[in-house]
Write a protein that binds this DNA or RNA. Sequence first.
DNA 1: TATGAATGAGGCTTCATTCAT
DNA 2: CATGAATGAAGCCTCATTCAT
Lengths: 215, 215, 215, 215
Amino acid sequence: MRPEDRSGGQKRASFIEEARRAQILECAIETFAELGYANTSLARIAERAGISKGVISYHFAGKSELMEQLVEQVYREITQFVLPRMEKESTATGALRANIRSVAEYMRGHRAQRLALGEIFNNLRTPDGKRRYGIAFNEPIYVQREAMFRLGQQTGELRPFDPRVMAVTVQAAIDEMFAYWATYPDHDLEAHADELADLFEHATRAERPGGAADR
Amino acid sequence: MRPEDRSGGQKRASFIEEARRAQILECAIETFAELGYANTSLARIAERAGISKGVISYHFAGKSELMEQLVEQVYREITQFVLPRMEKESTATGALRANIRSVAEYMRGHRAQRLALGEIFNNLRTPDGKRRYGIAFNEPIYVQREAMFRLGQQTGELRPFDPRVMAVTVQAAIDEMFAYWATYPDHDLEAHADELADLFEHATRAERPGGAADR
Amino acid sequence: MRPEDRSGGQKRASFIEEARRAQILECAIETFAELGYANTSLARIAERAGISKGVISYHFAGKSELMEQLVEQVYREITQFVLPRMEKESTATGALRANIRSVAEYMRGHRAQRLALGEIFNNLRTPDGKRRYGIAFNEPIYVQREAMFRLGQQTGELRPFDPRVMAVTVQAAIDEMFAYWATYPDHDLEAHADELADLFEHATRAERPGGAADR
Amino acid sequence: MRPEDRSGGQKRASFIEEARRAQILECAIETFAELGYANTSLARIAERAGISKGVISYHFAGKSELMEQLVEQVYREITQFVLPRMEKESTATGALRANIRSVAEYMRGHRAQRLALGEIFNNLRTPDGKRRYGIAFNEPIYVQREAMFRLGQQTGELRPFDPRVMAVTVQAAIDEMFAYWATYPDHDLEAHADELADLFEHATRAERPGGAADR
DNA sequence: TATGAATGAGGCTTCATTCAT
DNA sequence: CATGAATGAAGCCTCATTCAT
């Protein structure tokens, strides 16, 4: 019976609790990344963590909760890394470039996180059989990126296009960049990110009226 | 004990055999598409096909072989649909547009195939734990698309860019288009495909020397 | 529905029938010898024979019948080889020596037979769980050998001992000789047989009148 | 997930663990002895033990490990019973007699053990299809018995003969004695053992100086 | 006669989860 | 808090057997 949130002080308990949960999540990330969704069992996570299988059940309501926590944590980390870097930019093009590059920068040091996220993202389902995380989970990202594109279109910086399709495609391009890198670890991630930035700059910027080219 | 491919004709035997295999593959596609990789068992496929569990084992050497055959068949179908439509085009831009639109056209009528393919693609692993189909499986597609881009760059139709990154990104964009559509069935697939064609046309075409833009 | 023994002539049918049965039994012997009882399935026997699995079911009422026929056939062969060679001898000691050596001689050329026989002997059980061939199956051999020993004891050629124990032990010694040889194919079978003959000659022959008895 | 052997003391945990393992092994022995190798499944062992099937998998890595542990345990028990009784003897003949009789004495109270051992011995194979325990497993027994015979031959107590063949044959005689007894439970085991002792005494002892020799 | 096809039982194993300690 | 122990379901596979052709 895992402790419910009690208003009382129990600092130490909470500390150990959090440490264990963090440790378990970390080992879970490695396991999902290495063995894939179907081969990742609680037993294997426990084994990697050097703890008893029951401990996981104690700290998480079930395998599903563990995976959801994992997704939430990784997502939070990425957002905290990327957002500030985007907010420094003033133009839509600049923000998009910052977006792509900072995500790349983050992922470079967190390969396992990205892989684990993908495994759960693609596979976890609710008990009724529907995907737990569909593309719908990207909705916040899409919305924010759409807003960015709309702003750029209003200022005339960007050409007219469907902002939703563009937002979806940017995300796909970034995801595939990492998938490609995961398969070919020698692939030059930064160069790929720069190419993507160029690609989407060309794809989105407004036509030049009299017209010189980009950059 | 499934019969090995014998050079002899035995048409009739082969007919029943092939019919069953086709039926099983079809039910497998539906099951993977509907329930996802982890929830798709041979038992459930058999159930959907209305046959005994053992029949699958009789016609396929194992679950892995079944999945590999499934991938092979779907891939073949797609290629046979898309390739002729691309070969009609004379310019790189035209071929890319034809590529995107014909894939969209095909997928529209074969949603389950695409989903099943994705499930297996993302999850099937060899006994030693490595991915059976990595991105590496897209290699033929990449190579062909790269060649197309290089040709366009030589004729001056396309701007300079990394053909590999562009090939990978195009594939990602197409895949995500379907994933998005799978999540939101009301999404306008053709419009999305057109947007993608525009997007990549802008992203790839050569800068105008003195200036005016496209279309 | 396998043909019952009909008094009518059907020579050719019977011929094909017998040929098939012989072929199946031969392949069964090899399979049992090579893979062992637990790993020998009808499918594997059929595979080795290059025929369909159903053929076996057609010619034999079941796996059990096949095994029983196998035992019967091998036993018959051995008896037909050994008996004449024993009957040439006039003394019990000579007959025993002939027995051991002729069995050795036969087995040398029929290693698979001996192994297959052993597998079935040790493992086949009736539906109620009792051994199909216990040691009881050796009863005819024991009886005959006992008679031989009794005769020798009456003539004074052999010392007094329990003929049954001796008969059982001789059989065990012969069997183990082959098991040993099966494990170490370079083992000198003939030398071993001669040693056994010496061993049992010492073990059975009467004490010398002038000499002291045992213990 | 069974606990590896840790150097730490954890007595109590080990106690339950060991008790269960012992219980399972005991039930396995009974099952093998009663139903034979081919009819002994983990399910049946669990059933006899009154536990869930999974418990066996929890305590043993697999069916093979269970069988190997079984063999090891029974072998250890026999050795611990027989060896001290042999070491009391000073002559080779005496030691051999002690050997045969003490084995008989032990087996009398452990019929199931002997049967189970035989089943596994004759049938268990490694994944590559070769026998797990061939005759080679008796090698230590052979070696020790050979040494005993050689010593007796050097002191002149025993006649010249091939010690290996004699060692193998003694083992076969003992084994068959039990197999015979297993089939005919009313058979007089002690009398048989005494007969065997006499038999091998005659077979091995040196010729009497005053008496004529063999053959 | 022979075959391919199908069946359903049973085997071993892995797994998420629960529970007493 | 943590653990070892246990459970029962489910998964994949192999098998002997039956049957229509």
